[in-house]
């Protein structure tokens, strides 16, 4: 690219309701290339829905989502070409249980990008090695620990060479001792300059890895600030209450 883009993803007044329930109430946010944004907030604040909307798994009711300046939320647009560029990792992994680890990772590159079996398998093995799963390549998801499954899910997403990664509470379903191995992978992604949006309950991790922490409350971004600032001087009363509750629960 000749001119450095300053905005990778732009959320403009994004609104989404499920029936009478307004889940997203006008989200505005610009995300720069290689920026890591952590969304925090209580359950039901709209974190997951926002990520699913950016991945076009949910349609938005109003507003716009721009990827490199292109409105990908336009009604009627074929979402597939854009989904390829945006990887998503889910809380419950969503691995394909009838395929081996290798097959899980190589499926999309073969079917979507049209890579040959050898090409896709080679790339998949590289990713498997990189994420420390070399001995599990031919195992099935059910034979793996939660942490290993989540690393496979990340590898599956990375196999499409995405420009942006959306991580939806990827450690919430894991035993505490398995969280670390998954977070290590996210750290590595950051050091490689991946643009990432993550919804998380891991405050310590949000503080460590993100460039900005955004607090979501009732479908709105109440506050967005670099972590040092966000955690030491929260501006908004709701943010203060939330952080207080988290501190009381011993999660910070």
């Amino acid at each position: 690219m000749s001119t450095e883009r300053t905005v990778k993803i732009s959320l403009q007044d994004v609104r989404k309701s499920f029936g009478a329930r307004h889940v997203l109430n006008g989200i505005n946010l610009d995300i720069k290339p290689s920026e890591v944004i952590a969304f925090i907030g209580s359950s039901g604040s709209g974190k997951s829905t926002l990520l699913r909307c950016i991945n076009l798994l949910e349609t938005i009711d109003d507003g716009a989502i721009l990827l490199d300046g292109i409105d990908i939320s336009e009604p009627g647009l074929n979402p597939d070409p854009y989904r390829r560029r945006i990887g998503m990792v889910f809380q419950n992994f969503n691995l394909f249980p009838h395929m081996t680890v290798l097959e899980n990772i190589a499926l999309a590159p073969r079917k979507v990008l049209g890579q040959s079996k050898k090409e896709a398998d080679d790339h998949a093995r590289e990713l498997i090695d990189r994420l420390g799963l070399s001995d599990r390549a031919d195992g099935y998801p059910d034979q793996l620990s939660g942490g290993q499954q989540q690393r496979v899910a990340i590898a599956r997403s990375l196999a499409m060479n995405p420009e942006v990664m959306l991580l939806d509470e990827i450690t919430s379903a894991l035993d505490p001792e398995l969280v670390g191995e998954v977070l290590d992978v996210v750290r590595e992604l950051k050091s490689n300059g991946m643009t990432m949006l993550l919804a998380t309950h891991e405050m310590g991790f949000a503080r460590e890895i993100s460039d900005r922490v955004c607090f979501l409350h009732q479908g709105q971004v109440l506050e967005c600030a670099p972590p040092a600032e966000f955690f030491s001087q929260p501006q908004h009363e709701r943010t203060q209450q939330f952080l207080q509750r988290v501190t009381d629960a011993g999660r910070l």
Binding site: R83, R84, N94, V112
Partner: peptide
Amino acid sequence: AGARSLGL
């Protein structure tokens, strides 16, 4: 969701 998110 898992499959569609990969662009299938």
